[in-house]
């Protein structure tokens, strides 16, 4: 293991003169030697070190960005534990597992790409970047199949979860739902000081037929089967030949509020997917520059920093996977 760079010690402790503080006299000679060195940095190390700190700060913002969703997940799971443990079985663990492996492998090739860039192996760098890119494509393809499968089964977000749009009736209703505001506050014409409260759905366990009465109100806290009944949809309860794709509507064991699981599932994996797409753009850009021969053992900061971004995408998936697919 070769450490070529003596790491500056506790340079940021606020005492004494800084060893990473810049130095104009030193700078000018370095600028002549390294054309990539920007005018306000003194040495390649100075530039590299600043870029790394900047990237780590950006990664911290990414952690907090996803952190909000993780917090939402924790609160919802804490509120509806039965929903999470039950609905999780609607996800395909094997597909999720394969996707995890694909991302880990692409992370490995990215780490190798950085190594190849550091050691001037242009061909290795290009191959590794292509492999990483392929990994990203593979991940998105598997994700695409997962999503389309779920959407086909109507395991979707929001009210549509209870109203399969494949159904002619359902389609009409889904449209209505998307147009009408889900809750409405109406002023009493007699006495404007009194507000009628939003028409919330009643507790379905009490009276499933009441759901129909508040039919355009949000579906609230109903189990999928009760909702399907109330909507007048075929549930297949008495008809064994019934083959509706939305099997969760006939799943009597599925707890109320199951749509919440899928809402947070799509929110988190969707945002992660957007990050994978962004990562693909970054890798493609690195590839273009690598082919142009921009990187060498002197200058590989973009590969390193792009790699850090790709690893954080992997890191987030490492947590998403057990939180959604591995609930017993």
């Amino acid at each position: 293991m070769t450490t070529l760079q003596t790491q500056p010690g506790h340079a940021d402790d606020g005492h004494g003169v800084h060893d990473d503080a810049h130095d104009v006299a030193h700078g000018s000679a370095e600028h002549a030697k390294y054309p990539f060195l920007q005018h306000h940095f003194d040495t390649p190390y100075h530039q590299f070190d600043s870029a790394k700190l900047g990237m780590w700060l950006f990664l911290a913002t990414e952690v907090l960005f996803f952190g909000g969703l993780f917090v939402a997940y924790a609160v919802l799971r804490n509120r509806f534990p039965e929903v999470f443990s039950y609905s999780s079985h609607y996800l395909d663990t094997i597909m999720g597992g394969i996707n995890t492996c694909v991302l880990i492998l692409s992370s490995l090739t990215m780490a190798l790409a950085v190594r190849f860039a550091q050691t001037n192996r242009k061909k290795g760098l290009i191959i590794c970047l292509i492999l990483t890119f392929m990994g990203a494509i593979g991940f998105m393809v598997i994700k695409y199949f997962e999503y389309t499968h779920k959407i086909h089964d109507n395991l979707v977000w929001g009210t549509t979860f209870y109203v399969p749009p494949h159904d002619a009736v359902g389609e009409l209703e889904a449209k209505e739902l998307s147009v009408a505001p889900t809750t409405s506050i109406t002023l009493n014409p007699v006495n404007p000081a009194v507000f009628a409260v939003p028409t919330l759905a009643p507790i379905p366990a009490v009276d499933a037929s009441a759901i129909k009465q508040a039919s355009r109100a949000p579906v609230g806290l109903a189990t999928p089967t009760q909702m399907a009944k109330a909507e007048g949809l075929p549930t297949g309860e008495h008809d064994p030949s019934f083959a509706h794709p939305a099997t969760h509507l006939v799943d009597k064991k599925m707890p109320a509020n199951s749509h919440v699981f899928f809402a947070i599932y799509y929110a988190m994996t969707g945002l992660h997917g957007v990050h994978v797409l962004a990562g693909m753009v970054v890798i493609a850009w690195l590839l273009k520059r690598a082919i142009a021969g921009d990187f060498s053992s002197d200058y590989f900061t973009p590969v390193d920093v792009g790699g850090l971004y790709w690893h954080i995408v992997d890191l987030i998936w490492i947590f998403l996977f057990p939180l959604f697919y591995l609930i017993h």
């Binding site: 939402a72 929001g158 809750t183 949000p218 509020n257």
Partner: peptide, 9 residues
């Protein structure tokens, strides 16, 4: 209307 902030969902 995904139902993370909406009480009726």
């Amino acid at each position: 209307n995904i139902g993370i902030f909406d009480p009726s969902m």
